[in-house]
Amino acid sequence: MAEAHAEEHHGHHVTSNRVLNTTFLQLFAAMVITILAARAPIDGPALFPGFKDFFLKWEYAWGATNAIALGIAAFKAVQVIRFFMGVQYASGLIKLYAVMGFVGFTWLYILFWDYVGRPWEPVRGWETVPGTALPRDPDSDAGVPYKLYPGKEEGASAEMSHE
């Protein structure tokens, strides 16, 4: 860590017009790409119809386009932080704090282990049991009175396959 009082002059950096303009255009372009990517039917099953079952079985399929959208968003965020917020030209300390929030935020995601791990246990959990809390019928294998909603076949199947 640097001394508290570095004697040399720390002149602040003035970001040039060129950098600002380029960044803005990049952001703008990235946004258009995001919209196109989201509106276009390019998720796994659509791109690879032959592997439809595979994608339905593997829940990661839904994440493909999300990953694209979030990847672009992350790119935009990084550009904003680097050039608009001037972190690119700032001291190491500022860089540290610019990163810290995002690192701390990822720590929160540890709790996903809980939700990932729950289905591995024998108790089926976390379904909606609307209206009642009565014990399930022990003789029936399905057990949980799962409410199916009109037009919800797809959601329901994803839900069940996940259990």
């Binding site: 720590w107 540890i110 709790l111 282990w113 809980d114 791990g117 591995w120």
Partner: peptide, 21 residues
């Protein structure tokens, strides 16, 4: 300190995996 909060919830129906971690 930021990585241990789950020990308040060992038996609050969090998953066994999370409990062990």
């Amino acid at each position: 300190g930021f990585l241990v909060w789950g020990h308040h919830m060992f038996f609050s129906s969090q998953s066994v995996l999370q409990g062990i971690i």
